[in-house]
Design a protein around this nucleic acid. Structure first.
Lengths: 383, 383
DNA sequence: TCCGAAACGATCACACTCGAACAAATGAGA
DNA sequence: TCTCATTTGTTCGAGTGTGATCGTTTCGGA
């Protein structure tokens, strides 16, 4: 009805805004305030406070009551009527790869976004923190983003700086498949991540139950997942009282071109000397190659060498098909969007959520049936 | 602190909306209330409570009965008819206390259950694992439970056995404010818990920012929360490079009756010799008593001794009002029910979720404004 | 079925709060 | 400098929440 009433933020002096901010602070601290007390505290008239309360109540930030205001309450029926502004939000999503691992995460996120009536904008970035930040900045600048889902590299000083920067953004941020320390530079960040350590442990315990007593680990440290897999593997060994210093642990990062076959032979030699009959291989791509290599060298899989892959993109394609730990990628995306939707709907009152999801162990042929003892014999013949 | 005491009666009167909110909380926590009890608890006349009940009944939020009110029931024929749907699932909930901490958790759970159209059956149990198991068994036997939310004592061998038993139950189980190891005996259990260590750390960092350099900790190890608080306190000290071995850490469990004052004096003496100017006090009830003791001994709060309470039940009642870490109790219940609802809807395909919630730091007077240096002077006079 | 105790609600009284109307102060822009 | 829009303060009648009284209704046990 009032044609010249300015929209939010147009003509209000900083002073009144500060006062309202202060009012909200008091409200959060005490749960409720009286007009009289606040007026005295801030040194203004009660009427001014009442007007502030009315403004805040119109925005749904407080509930008006006779004599003061309280935090918004469902019992406040004036609020229930004026709340159908279910205005739909846009979420930006920046992931480090658009062809490996992340497509499924994105797919889960997209499905949930549709469900929640949210728009989602996906961008790929390089794995390094600097490019990640550029991509996020681009999204912030060009699109109208209400929230951000991101999976940056957080290692090193650059990563920590990025973490601080993300934490200070004016929009909510959810990390996917990344963890932030609860501590200070990241206390506002929420995340959802697969418990890779649990997944690795599950694989080790499965191999143990199949009768293996020496269980090795072959990883690719160029992946950010790798440290968690190694940690889970070590913890499981410790829990099963397998001495970790005698266990085979090799890494295939930074091999020279064509050096893979030689490295695999090296690994098999180590397995022979340590009587290792089972391997957990990170990245199922590598697991497929490793199984192929074993077969080529005349080893029976799983008879001479049982194998569980970590990750389940192509594991089923190998011959024999590879048992694999499958991270709940779809759910990582889905839960990330759920977190974001809830955050956007509920605002600051909602506590920070940090969610771990357990992966699943998919059993196929490469690990079923115990080791042939002595396994060392077959290994010896093959080399 | 006796719960009968009308704490709010003395000058801390509630607004009508808060009163109704409180009433609903009591109702959800206990299932039913009497006008008389609530009137006494809130320090208002019975007539006022009756009027509140009428208002809530008009909105269909409660069912009126002679002498009090209950949660809305289908048998209540005054119900507005908007209740044609049957409950989809029934959830059992067993918590270790019905008067402390847990009522708010239950309230959050009930609110969410209503939202999700679930029935929820609450039982209290003793803190020990054996009784917990009995209560769960009773629910399983007599009711038709589709899921279970439970908060058992998991320490010791008995606790581990209980964990195995819960894990093997044929219905989904969600732990509230308890963590299960990801490992084998509990791989199916989901949980939601407050990150108390983070909360304690947040308090310590706040005190550090206010200028305190020796920050002590006063706990009550009879509470299962206590170890996490101590851990967070230690970690924060380490992160801030405060030597932990010189820090004051006292526990008030198992004091002789009337020994509290003597113990507080002992604590203050320790603070004096170690130049400790700030304390994190677990259980805000104890924090209130401690603040009172400091004031009685002539110490300025926060000038001579800054105090942050852990937990926020009565912290605001102290003089000066106490800054406190507030666990998101309502959300613990709410998220537990959300987990259960999603599990019941999606079945085994859904990965196991494990959720940590961050508490919030409510800043009040007892910790704002740095220490007066040298603080030792005032302490010395007081002893 | 009856009876006593308790709970209930209509009414009034009181204290306090609310908001409209108007006035004064402040700041921005012509 | 003036003017106009905005914000803040004052006054006062209307409105609201609460409690006390008291007659009526409801409950539960004999």
């Amino acid at each position: 009805m009032s044609p010249e009433q300015p929209l939010e933020g147009a003509g209000k002096s900083l002073f009144s805004l500060q006062r309202r901010e202060r009012l909200m602070e008091e409200l959060r601290a005490h749960g409720a305030i009286t007009v009289r007390a606040i007026a005295a505290k801030l040194g203004v008239s009660e009427l001014t406070i009442r007007r502030d309360v009315n403004i805040l109540a119109d925005e749904g930030l407080v509930s008006r009551v006779h004599g003061g205001a309280t935090l918004p309450s469902r019992l406040d029926r004036s609020a229930t009527g004026a709340r159908p502004q279910q205005h739909s939000y846009s979420i930006g999503m920046v992931v480090p790869s658009l062809d490996y691992y992340w497509p499924q995460v994105i797919s889960g996120a997209r499905a949930e976004a549709e469900e929640q009536n949210l728009r989602i904008l996906v961008r790929g970035s390089a794995y390094d923190a600097a490019d990640n930040r550029r991509q996020v900045q681009a999204l912030l600048d060009t699109q109208n983003i209400d929230g951000l889902i991101v999976a940056p590299d957080l290692t090193g000083e650059v990563g920590q700086e990025l973490l601080r920067w993300l934490n200070a953004l004016p929009i909510p941020v959810v990390l996917a498949e990344r963890r932030s320390p609860g501590e200070n530079p990241a206390h506002r960040l929420e995340w959802v991540a697969t418990d890779h350590a649990f997944g690795a442990g599950m694989a080790v315990r499965h191999l143990w139950q199949e009768g293996h007593r020496q269980i090795g680990c072959l990883t690719d440290s160029s992946s950010p997942t790798s440290p968690h897999v190694v940690r889970g593997w070590r913890q499981a060994l410790a829990a099963l009282k397998i001495p970790a210093d005698g266990a085979v642990h090799e890494d295939s990062a930074k091999l020279p071109t064509g050096g893979r076959a030689a490295h695999f032979d090296h690994v098999l030699e180590l397995c022979r000397t340590t009587v290792t009959t089972a391997m957990l291989v990170h990245s199922d791509t590598q697991a497929v190659a490793f199984v192929q290599h074993c077969v080529d060298r005349g080893l029976q899989v799983p008879g001479d060498m049982a194998i569980v892959g970590y990750d389940d993109e192509v594991a089923y394609l190998a011959e024999p098909a590879i048992s694999a730990v499958r991270p709940p990628k779809q759910y990582v995306g889905k839960v990330a969007v759920q977190l974001m939707a809830a955050r956007l709907a509920e605002g600051r009152m909602r506590p920070v959520h940090r969610i771990e999801l357990n992966p699943e162990l998919i059993l196929r042929e490469s690990s079923i049936g115990g080791p042939r003892v002595p396994a060392a014999g077959a290994l010896q013949e093959s080399l």
